[in-house]
């Protein structure tokens, strides 16, 4: 026993160093598995306030591009207004059903909450964004985040006024995708090297795919609104192990300059989850 104590005293520096290493590695691997830890709760508010202060300066550099994107989105939305459509036949008259409108709120499935991006990274294997909108403003984990031009990621951690988003450029991010042409479901993931491209796997060979085809979110996703653009096929390749396509997809979102985003709230999520739970019980 005495020798053990002597040993520890002699090598106390080494033991202390090893203990710190073990602590560091433990937090590292635990965090990546569960995407949550006590750790983040208090640090988010502090790092968030530093980031948002710097971001208010940094914003000016990308204003032009950002305006462009927002204007484009505005135009797209304006084009969807009812007033833009006229009826070809004058005998038909458009009447809105007032009863239906009164209860319209119940049919709404997705609600878009605007949020400002206060930090973003693209150069690690696990990229996260930080939004200035937290649980006090209605954000909960697992909500989708989209940008003006395409999808961005998923909320993984929320504090009172900030939230952390797992970027699409994260080694553990997975999104169900479909070809805009209508068929061919697959799974989007990131290989961890180039921030401009993601990979679409598991699309069966029966679907005809060409370079330039658009990839959008699927209607089966319980997070993402259906039909939201993910990217454009850049290269068509084969996955030899499974006999399906392996497509290189250029992301629609330019991850180098994200400034504004929308957190997407699925208003029917609770109902859906309750239903799924009841199936599992039986």
């Amino acid at each position: 026993m005495r020798n053990v104590f002597l040993f520890i005293r002699r090598y106390f520096n080494l033991v202390f160093f090893l203990a710190l290493q073990v602590v560091a590695l433990m937090i590292l691997f635990r965090f990546n598995k569960f995407h949550e830890s006590v750790f983040d709760e208090f640090s988010n508010e502090i790092t968030g306030s530093v980031n948002s202060r710097f971001n208010s300066v940094e914003n000016y550099f990308a204003l032009k591009k950002e305006n462009e994107a927002l204007r484009q989105q505005n135009a797209e939305l304006l084009n969807k207004l009812k007033a833009d459509f006229s009826w070809p036949d004058s005998s038909q008259q458009f009447i809105s059903d007032t009863i239906r409108i009164d209860s319209l709120e119940q049919y709404r499935k997705f609600l878009f909450l605007p949020a400002k991006v206060i930090s973003n990274s693209v150069n690690t294997q696990q990229n996260y964004l930080m939004l200035q909108r937290g649980s006090a403003q209605g954000v909960t984990p697992n909500m989708a985040v989209v940008g003006p031009s395409g999808i961005i990621g998923t909320v993984v951690n929320v504090s009172k006024n900030m939230s952390v988003v797992m970027s699409l450029l994260h080694r553990q991010s997975k999104v169900v995708a479909v070809m805009k042409k209508g068929s061919g479901f697959g799974e989007i993931s990131w290989e961890g090297s180039n921030p401009h491209f993601v990979t679409l796997m598991k699309v069966p060979k029966t679907v005809q795919i060409q370079k330039g085809d658009t990839v959008v979110t699927s209607q089966f996703s319980d997070k993402y609104p259906p039909g939201y653009v993910i990217g454009i096929v850049e290269e068509v390749g084969n996955d030899e192990s499974s006999g399906s396509y392996k497509l290189k997809v250029k992301t629609a979102t330019d991850f180098f300059r994200i400034q504004n985003a929308f957190v997407v709230k699925n208003l029917q999520r609770e109902e859906l989850e309750a239903l799924e739970k009841s199936i599992k019980k039986n």
């Binding site: 160093f17 602590v23 560091a24």
Partner: peptide, 14 residues
């Protein structure tokens, strides 16, 4: 804390 990779840089710096 800033890069959301708890433990990664800490291990290297130690």
């Amino acid at each position: 804390f800033f890069t959301h990779t708890p433990g990664l840089h800490a291990a290297a710096c130690t």
